[in-house]
Simulated assay, not measured.
Amino acid sequence: MLVLILSVVVLLAIGGCGCVFWAARGDAPRWARGVAKATLLGSELTRSASGKSRTQSGQDISSSSDS
């Protein structure tokens, strides 16, 4: 069951990336541009959520102690 759910998630992610590529070319229909916009929004939300969790746990990658 878990494999089925993960497979669906991976297929949706691949489809979303395909729509982003298609929309970037400029000849995509309106529904593909909408899927691309939703995919990019989801990636930004995921990126910001993972950045907050890293900062809150004290594992911020951007801060280095080279001195």
Rank of each mutant, 00 (worst) to 15 (best):
L45W: 12
S7W: 04
L12D: 15
V3I: 03
L6C: 02
K37S: 12
Q56A: 15
G42N: 15
G58T: 03
G58Q: 10
G16F: 00
D66A: 07
S48W: 15
S48L: 14
D66V: 10
Q59D: 10
L11M: 09
S67W: 14
G26M: 05
E44Y: 04
S7D: 15
V9A: 15
A49Q: 07
I61P: 00
A36N: 02
M1G: 04
R47C: 12
W22N: 15
M1W: 02
A32L: 03
F21S: 11
W31M: 10
A28T: 06
L2E: 05
L45H: 03
D27L: 06
S64F: 14
L2H: 04
S64C: 15
V10M: 04
G15Q: 06
Q59G: 02
S63L: 13
T46V: 13
A13P: 01
T39H: 06
R30Q: 11
I14C: 03
S65D: 14
L2T: 04
G34W: 09
R33S: 04
S57D: 13
G15E: 08
A38R: 08
A23M: 01
V9S: 06
S65W: 06
T39F: 09
I14R: 02
A23Y: 00
S57L: 10
R33Q: 10
G51K: 10
G42E: 08
A49K: 05
